[in-house]
Structure formats: structure tokens, C-alpha cells
Design a protein around this nucleic acid. Structure first.
Length: 356
DNA sequence: GTCCCGGTCC
DNA sequence: GGACCGGGAC
């Protein structure tokens, strides 16, 4: 860190001044309702505002209060979350709403420490709710804050480490003014999202340029330091789309893999993109028709290569199919109910190509 | 296509 | 520290 004496007040003052002139107009700002603030923060975890915004509207519309969310089913919540990714957020959101409604008399915890005990609420989200809804003096540290502080103060600690988390939280909590914690937190995030951006930050119009370590040292593009060592796993999946009459065979994905709780199809997975990945039916031989188009679906840590085969089962084999599905833990779903299943993006894309 | 972005949990 | 998603910039 820059060891020259640090003017904490100058930094905080300038950030807040900048924010007052350049606030983002977001629907959850201006409310003090912890439910709406919590909802927006969970949706925005790992998600850009532009992507999260339509989901925020869908959710406040469908579930205007924590009670409405608590009384919904998990399937309903997952379906509304469909396409947003990181589905554990939706499962935790629902579990948390139930907890608040049934165990806490519908009242959100009102301190940072108590908020931290909620599922899906970590240090960032707890600080956000505590400061925005309850005026607690607790600094948020998200990706924006890491970047702004690393650049301005010249901190070279790898932000992927636990050490960095402690270090940046300590610094942010020294910077946050006791008389306007919420405004400071909003300001830091907006400043990082709109001016001090990851690529091509707008240094020429930055009010902190003169005292910014990175700018003065020509290190803006080198900070923050983030050592990415996530290795990407390649997977090959052969999906079987099995139909009988107007019923389709679906599989609810289990714990311990991607897309937990969402629906896709019976599948076989192989190391190579072998044509040999075949699903085994009990007795009858059903013909699988390969769909020519293959799909590549990229996650942060996996590359999925998916192919699909269609299996048309004649109606006289319905009972046979039902028995087999039951035994395998699959579900038969009528065609008109498919749109209500929560499905991964890959499956939504596939269905779209099939005309659904 | 390739690279980059981001909170919480286990 | 690694697993968890999808989209946007280039």
C-alpha cells in the first residue's frame, strides 16, 4: 500500500460528491423495505444490473412481500429464476423467506451480525442490507469496491484470497463515514460500475485522479491483482428426449452437480465425444434418432458438449415406460406442463430450436 | 470464437 | 480454495 499518509476523508468525500452527481436510477433505491433490498441484492450477486433488472421486476411482481415468497413452492421460485444462473441463490432465497416468515414473524433481522446468519447472505449482502435498510455503519465489499480501493490505494494483494477480503473490508470500514453509510456504499459500487470499470476506466473524468496510486504509477490496468486458476472441465453429455404420446420423460437434477433442482433429460456422460453413449432400456429396443445439431454450453468451470437423441415410444408401451421411469427416478410430464418446469439455459435453447 | 465479470457455501 | 451460471465485450 501507498505508505504516504492517507486522507480518508478526502477519498470518501469525493466519492460521495461524484455519486450525488451521477447516481444510477435503480428501482430498489429509495425504498427502506428490507425485503425488497434483500431481494435485489440476492439477484445482483454475480449478476450485472442489466441482466438482473427484469428478474427483480418479475419477483416483486409475483411476490410483493416475504409472505408471498414464503408461501410459494421451491419449483415456482426456481422457474421464475430460470436463466439467471447460480440456482443455489434461488433455493436459498426461498428457504430464507420461509425462515423469516415462519420463524421470525415476517421481520427481517436488522443488524449485520444477525443478517449474516441467513442462507445466501454473506458479508457483502449483510452489509448492503444493514446499511441500506437500517443505516448501520458497515462497508460493503464487492467486486467494484475491490477494484476501486486496489487502484486508489495501490493494494497488490490477490483479491481471490481470504487475506485480501479481510484487508479490503478493514480499509472500507475505515473509509465509510458514520453519518452517511448507505450513501457511501452506493457511491462505491456505482463509481466502480460506471467510472472505475474493469476495462477502459474513465480516468480523465475521475475526481480522484490526482491522488489515485494506480493512475499516478501507470498501473490502472494491473490492479486489482486477481490470480485466476480455475481449471475448466470438459464434459460430453448425450441427452435422450423420450416421448410417449404427449408425455415426455424428465429428470430433476440432483445435489452435487450443476443445475441442482432444475429439470433436464435422462442422459449418459462420457469422457470422449463417443457415439457409444447409449442409455439402457429394460427390455424393448427403442430406436433413438440423433438430432444433427450439437450444443456447446460454457460455464465458468465447465464446458458442456451436448448431443440429443429423440426416442419415440409407442403408446402400447406406455406402462412399460412408466415403470422404467419410476424405477429410474424420472418423471413423465405432459407437454403443456413443460413450460412450467425450471430448466437450464442449455435445455431452453434446445427446446427453442425444436420449436417450443 | 475467447476472455472476463462476480458472492456464498462447503 | 474450488464449485457454482450466464451474458457481454472484444
Amino acid at each position: 500500500m501507498n505508505t504516504k499518509s492517507i486522507d480518508y476523508q478526502l477519498f470518501s468525500h469525493e466519492i460521495i460528491q461524484w455519486y450525488r452527481a451521477n447516481p444510477r436510477d435503480l428501482p430498489w433505491r429509495g425504498t427502506l423495505d428490507p425485503y425488497q433490498i434483500w431481494l435485489s441484492e440476492i439477484i445482483l450477486q454475480q449478476t450485472r444490473v442489466a441482466q438482473g433488472l427484469p428478474y427483480y421486476y418479475k419477483f416483486v411482481n409475483a411476490f410483493p412481500s416475504v409472505r408471498d415468497l414464503a408461501l410459494a413452492s421451491e419449483e415456482e421460485v426456481l422457474r421464475l429464476w430460470q436463466g439467471l444462473g447460480y440456482y443455489s441463490r434461488a433455493r436459498n432465497l426461498h428457504a430464507c423467506a420461509r425462515f423469516v416468515w415462519h420463524e421470525l414473524d415476517g421481520k427481517f433481522p436488522n443488524t449485520y451480525e444477525k443478517l449474516l446468519l441467513l442462507k445466501g447472505v454473506g458479508s457483502y449482502t449483510a452489509a448492503a442490507i444493514a446499511s441500506f435498510a437500517f443505516g448501520e455503519v458497515k462497508a460493503v465489499v464487492d467486486g467494484n469496491v475491490f477494484r476501486v480501493l486496489a487502484r486508489y490505494f495501490g493494494i497488490e494483494t490477490d483479491i481471490a484470497t481470504g487475506k485480501a477480503k479481510k484487508e479490503f473490508e478493514a480499509l472500507a470500514n475505515r473509509l465509510i463515514p458514520v453519518d452517511q453509510p448507505a450513501e457511501f456504499n452506493q457511491a462505491m459500487m456505482d463509481f466502480g460500475a460506471r467510472l472505475c470499470t474493469p476495462k477502459n476506466p474513465d480516468c480523465p473524468s475521475c475526481p480522484l485522479q490526482q491522488s489515485c496510486f494506480a493512475y499516478q504509477q501507470g498501473m490502472v490496468k494491473d490492479l486489482p491483482v486477481k490470480i485466476n486458476k480455475t481449471k475448466i472441465r470438459e464434459r460430453h453429455i448425450h441427452y435422450y428426449v423420450i416421448r410417449c404420446g404427449d408425455k415426455w420423460v424428465w429428470k430433476r437434477r440432483a445435489k452435487g452437480d450443476i443445475w441442482e433442482g432444475l429439470y433436464d433429460f435422462p442422459q449418459v456422460e462420457g469422457d470422449l465425444k463417443s457415439e457409444k453413449m447409449e442409455i439402457s432400456f429394460p427390455e424393448s429396443e427403442f430406436e433413438a434418432k440423433k438430432i444433427p445439431k450439437s450444443y456447446r454450453h460454457i460455464l465458468s468451470h465447465q464446458r458442456l458438449n451436448a448431443v440429443f437423441s429423440e426416442v419415440e415410444v409407442s403408446e402400447e408401451n406406455m406402462q412399460n415406460l412408466e415403470d422404467w421411469a419410476e424405477e429410474q427416478g424420472y418423471q413423465l410430464v405432459e407437454e403443456q406442463r413443460i413450460e412450467y418446469l425450471a430448466k437450464p439455459k442449455l435445455i431452453v435453447n434446445f427446446l427453442r430450436d425444436q420449436g417450443f
